[in-house]
Design a protein around this nucleic acid. Sequence first.
DNA 1: TACAATTCTTAGCCAAGGCTAACTTTTTAG
DNA 2: CTAAAAAGTTAGCCTTGGCTAAGAATTGTA
Lengths: 162, 162
Amino acid sequence: MTESDRAEDELTPPPEGTGAISAHMTVDRQASHFKRARQARETEIVEDYVELVADLIDEQGEARSVDVAKRLGVTGATVNKMIARLKEMDLVNAEPYRSVFLTDEGRKMAEASRARHHIVVALLRAVGVDEATAWADAEGMEHRCSPETLAAFADFVKKQKL
Amino acid sequence: MTESDRAEDELTPPPEGTGAISAHMTVDRQASHFKRARQARETEIVEDYVELVADLIDEQGEARSVDVAKRLGVTGATVNKMIARLKEMDLVNAEPYRSVFLTDEGRKMAEASRARHHIVVALLRAVGVDEATAWADAEGMEHRCSPETLAAFADFVKKQKL
DNA sequence: TACAATTCTTAGCCAAGGCTAACTTTTTAG
DNA sequence: CTAAAAAGTTAGCCTTGGCTAAGAATTGTA
């Protein structure tokens, strides 16, 4: 499939009031957004696990898989499988029947994820979302914000406070 | 597993500066947030397809699966399988080798999805995110905002404009 | 009309991320 | 110290949503 195959898409006039293709949204751009979204869906589960492991370590000194399971609302078997995957990705260290620890890389991911989480919560609060809803909704939004958007959020929150 | 099994979670003091458990985030609440997030991941793909079918119908009078495939950046086979699923869910009508049409329910879902999409874009613009990034990031955030958050967004945007 | 290109369908594959059930190891209580 | 409870592991299953490859239907055109 070549570029010229769908050159006409570039010329489609922007229809008003729909989510349809327009100037800033060519077919190619849209496809790549969806691809990014699919990618995000894949990585966000990993990030959730890693962030949670970090939380547990910080709170309780160690992350036991039973606690991970409780907080994520999944079974122990599922956690086990996922931990194995995280281990393969070099995000955690784990020995059978022992609790889970973060590698440097894992810790870095957790901190980044956590930072994003907090920025999103702060932004939601700043535009008038109540505390509980902000925490609930940030879980999910945090993985879908580009660095640019997060920067804008941080900026906005900072200005709001002045 | 009973409530009392983890009553101690309610008493955990809120550690500062982490994403850890605190007053507004009991283990149960957190688990249910993650469950909601998993649910959202499942429904958002459906919504993406339905919204896109609506876009194509509005733009071109019909939704051909080759166009859906192009815009989502997936193969025709994938679209085919998904359309079959949407049909089972009574969101679309589709006959072999013919283009796809929305049922009333499908149209309703598309409109709702589109409305959310626009609110999110507007909010992002309002807090200083540039046009292109706003459109890119809204794709993904739109599925993760509760009605409360969307209402707050709409409210904030309206006030901003005055 | 017939053939070529395009589109659509089908079959079969894969990985991810859930689950249950059965089993082993570790921890805890008596 | 031993038995019961809790935690962790393993095996096997399911659904989703991707993919490729091969073939059938439709459409466009010489």
